[in-house]
Amino acid sequence: MRSFRSTTAALAGAAIASFTFLAPGTAQAWEPTKPVTFIIPAGTGGGADQMARFIQGVIAKHNLMSQPLVVLNKGGGAGAEGFLEVKKNAGDPHTIIITLSNLFTTPLATGVPFNWKEMTPVSMMALDQFVLWVNSSAKEKTAGEYIATVKAGDDKTMKMGGTGSKQEDQIITAALERVTAPKKFTYIPYKGGGEVATQLVGGHINSTVNNPIEAVSHWKSGALRPLCIFDGERSTYKEKVTADMAWSDIPTCKEAGVDVEYQMLRGIFMSPGVKPEETAYYVDLLKKVRETPDWKEFMEKGAFNQKSISGDEFKTWLDKAEKLHYDLMKEAGFLAPGK
């Protein structure tokens, strides 16, 4: 029933789109002819939601699009709802979607029939960092001391809080367990990153791997302490966040002797089967977004890695990332039966 409606919608969309092409003008001239739907495969308030609404705001503020951009949260089933919606609207150039790691983890963990190859990749906007945080009253000052505490304590006494289950936070936790072996964490899933950070401030959990933006304000107020960043190299942001530390002062986990690296994709995709000139329009649009001063400020505030690619390079990156997730999740035993 549902698919019938969306097929007609897609056909109608395609009809309008092809009609536009018959009109005089070059292929580059494609522009949306009706409001564009921007799907967020997550609930309100999370990192992806914040970024999508920020992009919407930047586009509106700088008048980058002739048609309005409508943001729609479709977070059901760990984002499966949103992905399935895009997959279904084949050929519709008026739907785009922001992705996070659940692009890979949701189909692998839930078995929902979906793969990133069933959408059209547009651009990578940035990579989100992960930082190991503890409460500032904790005695561990470095990642090394932290690992030593986990190893010295009883099994499963360290409570690691994170967003969702079998998603990025728990994958990083599983990767950390390689270092702390044979001691394991007790991973406690929460609904959102903000909640996780607050639980750490309140002392209900021992550590988190929050994204910078989720925890920065508690870091500033002196409630939390960063131990290391899960990236190959240190952050490039040198401006002081607290009285004596900048993002770039946080050591990488590797230099602290914890060989774990993980970053999360913040990218934009669109429906499968769209024309190259339609994709080109969005690639160009997002490039304009990234060039605004607002975006640069946003990136700095959240200490994002400003890597951004599109086209074939993006596809190669996605291929590698999918493989990485598969391996990590397989090792941790997070795969749905049959995957």
Binding site: R5, I16, T33, V70
Partner: peptide, 16 residues
Amino acid sequence: FLVPLPKGPLEALLGY
């Protein structure tokens, strides 16, 4: 409010 509701042929004809 820019909330898209299901539309049929008439709306498509009018460009929605």
